[in-house]
Design a binder for these strands. Sequence first.
DNA 1: CGGGGGTTTCCGTAATACGGAAGCAATCAG
DNA 2: CTGATTGCTTCCGTATTACGGAAACCCCCG
Lengths: 259, 259
Amino acid sequence: MSAEPGKRRPPVRAVTGPVLGRALRILEAFGPRHAALTLTDIARRSGLPLSTVHRLAGELIAWGALERDTAGRYTVGLRLWEVAALAPRGQGLRERALPYLEDLSQVTHENVQLAVREGAELVFVERIAGSRAVPVHTRVGGRFALSATGVGLVLLAYAPPELQQEVLGAAIRRFTPHTVTDPQLLARMLADVRANGFAVSDRQVTQDALSVAAPIRDPAGTVIAAVSLVVRYGSFAPQALSPLVRSSARAISRALASA
Amino acid sequence: MSAEPGKRRPPVRAVTGPVLGRALRILEAFGPRHAALTLTDIARRSGLPLSTVHRLAGELIAWGALERDTAGRYTVGLRLWEVAALAPRGQGLRERALPYLEDLSQVTHENVQLAVREGAELVFVERIAGSRAVPVHTRVGGRFALSATGVGLVLLAYAPPELQQEVLGAAIRRFTPHTVTDPQLLARMLADVRANGFAVSDRQVTQDALSVAAPIRDPAGTVIAAVSLVVRYGSFAPQALSPLVRSSARAISRALASA
DNA sequence: CGGGGGTTTCCGTAATACGGAAGCAATCAG
DNA sequence: CTGATTGCTTCCGTATTACGGAAACCCCCG
């Protein structure tokens, strides 16, 4: 087959074999707006042939990674959820941090968020909606850009330099007129975050909200997550919130250390 | 298919191909007491050759289904947790039910549990620990036998008859002197559950706890989950709790219907 | 420096996954 | 009733892929 005399074959290490790769692409076909799909939907969204999807989805169902709902559509299965509940950076983190997040919520009645970094984005691990709080559109398990939120700024500030370069180099998405999109300015803000130990996102995501976030660290000092309070703009001064958020972040760090 | 003449081989369709089957066995190797494993651990627990585990785990890591912690051990990855957060019977159910569970918690200050059935066991989808409550050893994402708890009795009472036979036919595990292990008696209790619309587990799991549970139904009337209150034995009469639990269950059913 | 636990790479063989195509089963429109 | 549409399931010959034993590797520890 490779009968060509010429030197071809760039040894592009295929990192995933066909079967697993395809199975994982099936899982990827699901998303917040697509929690229940027909077989054909999956095939379309994953770019796989229908018969392939049929075969693999059958295997995933047999194990419990997928299920079919009453309408016959495919959904993510409980068995997968059980296993995923063991993820240290997901449920594990969530459970250990929850009491402290609830304290923050009780004391302020504002929104509390907990997030970790995954590549060049963040994933919300918990969110407590305050009773008299600004509506915030975050979903547990949902993703968001690193560049705008309080938690995102913290996670970015302590991310590996290469990743910071990558994010600063790419176009920075604008959400409001206050969103910082200038790489220079953003770089300076990240330096401030490192210097101060907390981040402030002032109306960068929505016009009426401001968030203050602080880093959560593992015993080695590496930043592994971030907590934030999200309040209505004008209701609190950032300076008033930062000690509260910082001390909560430290308490959570300590709770994680004694695992 | 239903030809009588020759005894056909029972069509023992191998339902899972090698690759996926092995990959899923790797995921199964993780558990509550085994959230971080070495490659060798996984090989031992899954019964797979080391080189096979190495290859497949590598693919799972490349995708994010697994991660390696600071000690180099393998853990369940955040990417998998993200996808699993889309499971309708897991996070989906949890999110929609949570407000009602919190109401129950606020009103009683006791333990609240939410569970679904998976095969012949139950899986806890949420648990709220009451401030002045009996310590209960349940873990979100954890499994338990159907035969003893309040939620278990509800889920079993409305499970398909074959499954009830299976559970009643097998040896029923005893937790306390009060655990019902007689199949006859248990069958009668299940009939009562169906007749009354709620279940009571009286010190069947621990000596000091009693739980009252009620079914949550989908729009078609099928029981898909169960809620319960777990209280210290003697602190509340079951009759006092059942209206509360039943009405919460109905409220959750309604909330799910308007999805 | 030797031994042990864990990890990574290699590679010939055998078994498996692949997916196009055709058949099936509802549901809907006319 | 009929034909169209959408979605699901089965089949099967080929070629591609997964398989895993073995050996090298890499600490860390005594």
